[in-house]
Design a protein around this nucleic acid. Sequence first.
DNA 1: ATTGGCAGTCCAGTGCAACGAGTGCCAGAC
DNA 2: GTCTGGCACTCGTTGCACTGGACTGCCAAT
Lengths: 344, 344
Amino acid sequence: MVSERGLDVLRAIVQDYVASREPVGSKTIVDRYSFGVSAATIRNDMAALEEDGLIAAPHTSSGRIPTDKGYRMFVDHLAEVRALSTAQRLAIRTFLEEGADLEDVLARTVRMLSQLTNQVALVQVPVVPRSYVRHIELVVLSASRLLVVLITDAGRVDQRVVELPQSDHEHLDELELGELRARINGALVGRLIVDVAPALTALAEELSPTRRAVLERIGAALAATVDDRRQDRLLLAGTANLARTERDFPGSILPVLEAIEEQVVMLRLFREMELDDRGVSISIGRENPLIGLAETSILAGGYRSSAGEVARIGVLGPTRMDYSQNIAAVRAVARYLSKLLGEE
Amino acid sequence: MVSERGLDVLRAIVQDYVASREPVGSKTIVDRYSFGVSAATIRNDMAALEEDGLIAAPHTSSGRIPTDKGYRMFVDHLAEVRALSTAQRLAIRTFLEEGADLEDVLARTVRMLSQLTNQVALVQVPVVPRSYVRHIELVVLSASRLLVVLITDAGRVDQRVVELPQSDHEHLDELELGELRARINGALVGRLIVDVAPALTALAEELSPTRRAVLERIGAALAATVDDRRQDRLLLAGTANLARTERDFPGSILPVLEAIEEQVVMLRLFREMELDDRGVSISIGRENPLIGLAETSILAGGYRSSAGEVARIGVLGPTRMDYSQNIAAVRAVARYLSKLLGEE
DNA sequence: ATTGGCAGTCCAGTGCAACGAGTGCCAGAC
DNA sequence: GTCTGGCACTCGTTGCACTGGACTGCCAAT
């Protein structure tokens, strides 16, 4: 069981390790922080922290470093987010405001963010695909599974399987299905695929509650398909910072560089990170779905683009990063960017 | 003096070193290539090559590696450009043709090129600034020097000093200058700054030959200013390839990453590379103006964008790269890109 | 619960010797 | 003149043993 002081020790270990890249020992902590207890006591606390998997020793008889779980505990409960300095805020304002068009503003944003954090910065550039719905087909696979096929004027076909609500015991017979198909097509054909979601919501109003549940599933499937198909790009900056923190990547920075070059994958990962109440989302080390990013952490924030939709902005760096400062930077830049784009 | 066979030895050294990253010794050459002479003879040739600064030994009693000058000799006189395989050509075609808009085609191009070469690929995205000329001012600095000031509607002011032709002994007096100023402004004010060059050419027709020379200088200065002001972007891909060839960078890849992130600097460098008769330009190691790129070579090619102007495309990698293949790849992709964009 | 002390562990650095790849040079052969 | 085989020499690399230092874990005492 980790005591109250144990958590303070964890905080000290994280801060010290982030600052020095040296595994931190009990003596260091006693010297550098005023806990008012002896090294042996700290050692006991550290044993408890290790027991709980929050810290680990690279080898017997060396100091401890935080594990992914330790960093998680730190960012969730122990880190206080420092506000940016006035100078930094001013720099963000003036630099971003000089941007000409959206592309330029985002390019500036990503550079600014990478300089502010000394990490790799990423910004999602929302690009709305201009395809129109040509036809939607529904095929019954079994009593509880439905295949939804979306055909657009670009000639592209996407399909997706939908699990129907279990509670709904009235099977969809061919007749009903035909009606549903006709209604959905009536409501959607000829529309831009980005308008599919609102149109479906409107359609749902006209249906009985049981059918509405089915429609919702179909709508979700279509939304997911459209989402997958967005040709969003990713702006990157500060790759050099990866090389600068090379020593934090045991093997090499190669897998990291490979991962961030896979824009499609990174975008999905980025989109799937859900913001917490602080307006950021953090994915630490092996929490990360991509193996290449096992030694890196990603902070994501959201900004509201001119179209009103939420796009992502974030930084990526070694798990050994200054979370407090980076959270502050991502939040500040995201907030300012939303404001700037909202005004226009 | 390097003999005929000496150059063959150089070619062998370059090829072997590029393939193996091992300094190559006389014995290796005798074993692997059939020169029909003994190792001692090769050693003599190598001594001559070293004398001429074409190869060097990392330390006494080790094999030789090519110097920048050696690579230069290789690409200028010894390398034969291998044509791409049919499969590769087909891959280029089909992959690029799927691109939606210019941005998308270029994004695909840069990825394609980096995969083809296993190097960092760069593509210049031409962006024409939409500013209009508001006023042009001419100020005499001395008998032979003139200050040209360009003011555009964005409120931006650029100035440039022009050296007047020495042969022209009639000094420009204030009166004449005034007339010239009026004519230039008459011809240019209100025009897009990208149209400055053709408009000036038209104006030159109306002037006397002596004045025409002056106008040409002014025109060149304005063109240079406009060129500097272009907000061209650079698309990058394959940064991971740098990490993959990490061992070719004695210190670290950090300075290289830093250099390619400086888009403005890279663009200027890129633009200043003049294509040779093979349609490519090669800058090797320390020939490069940027210190951070002292261990890298850049190959540049040109493609004709839809607007008809020439933009750059290229690859960047360690000086120890497969020049033959990379030249072929850059040429093929540049050519195909021009064709694709020309059709539209 | 906390502390001082002590034995034990492991890493990083150092010095040394043996090894091997490759050169430079020279005297002799073609 | 050009080429060749041979030989001494130079260095980088590898393996090994050794030492110093930085920690930890545990225990008995407070």
